[in-house]
């Protein structure tokens, strides 16, 4: 209905409100001059991001593994792709585990226990740390579409008098080979919520928002190398979810390294 206001999920509203208000903005920290906050972001932005070729190489061993053990393939095609992505994410974390233990690979916000909000895109469970989350709004379908953009670009949404570009997260995080399975799917029907990150710069369309949980840094398999899937900070096996690095996700969208054919 036209009268409906896009409101944050009730169970999240208060915790997100408190978290945002009480978060010390980096630029106001007296001990950290403004200029010093930039180098923290630079390495993330300059990381080369995945190309279609990377993804193909990435996925092949996982697909082989599924072929050998056919009984693990779920009947629903979409779910298959989801499991593959999670397996890929977990496998990547496995590969870099030794490195992670040495180098850490932990973002600054993960030096202590931290809270994350779980959300789903095309069945894939993702987690975004609350420190990188600016809000969650209902998907109303009211976006200004921009002709000529990539298929994942859903349009500009107006929120608090700001125009926020909304992207179909599924099309960005699912491997290229699996995107075909989303072909018949209309993201505008699937999407229920928009997760706002990086000071409301981007809206990540998602299917469902779940609860907020607290994670110990040790519960996450951190990725020390982010040459591929820069947005993936690590994986949380216990919750079978991929931990999103909001800043890296935003940087990926800003610098265009996400573009796929």
């Amino acid at each position: 209905m036209a009268d409906n206001s896009p409101l944050v999920d009730q169970k999240l509203a208060v915790s997100m409100f408190l978290d945002s208000l009480m978060r010390e903005p980096e630029e106001e920290l007296p001990t950290v001059p403004l200029a010093e906050t930039v180098p923290f972001e630079k390495p993330v932005i300059s990381v080369p991001i995945l190309t279609p070729a990377d993804i193909a190489v990435d996925l092949s061993p996982v697909e082989e593994e599924i072929a050998v053990v056919p009984e693990v393939i779920p009947e629903v095609v979409v779910e298959t792709s989801i499991e593959v992505v999670q397996d890929v994410a977990l496998a990547e974390a496995e590969q870099t585990e030794t490195e992670t233990e040495i180098a850490g690979g932990r973002p600054e916000w993960a030096s202590e226990p931290f809270q994350v909000m779980l959300f789903n895109v095309a069945g894939l469970s993702l987690a975004v740390p609350l420190v990188e989350l600016n809000g969650v709004v209902e998907w109303t379908g009211e976006v200004t579409e921009m002709p000529g953009h990539s298929p994942f670009y859903m349009g500009l949404m107006t929120h608090l008098d700001k125009s926020i570009p909304v992207v179909d997260t599924a099309r960005l995080v699912l491997p290229a080979e699996k995107l075909g399975q989303l072909a018949g799917d209309d993201p505008k029907e699937r999407v229920k919520r928009v997760v706002l990150i990086d000071e409301h710069r981007w809206g990540l369309a998602c299917d469902e928002v779940n609860e907020v949980i607290t994670l110990e840094p040790d519960q996450v398999r951190w990725r020390s190398s982010r040459t591929k899937r820069a947005w993936l900070a690590g994986t949380v096996v216990e919750h079978m979810c991929a931990l999103v690095d909001g800043k890296a996700f935003s940087a990926m969208l800003e610098d265009g390294s996400h573009k796929r054919n």
Partner: peptide, 13 residues
């Protein structure tokens, strides 16, 4: 101000 980051710390500061 909505829920702008850090605006809960104005009085403290």
């Amino acid at each position: 101000l909505g829920a702008q980051e850090g605006k809960g710390l104005v009085i403290k500061n």
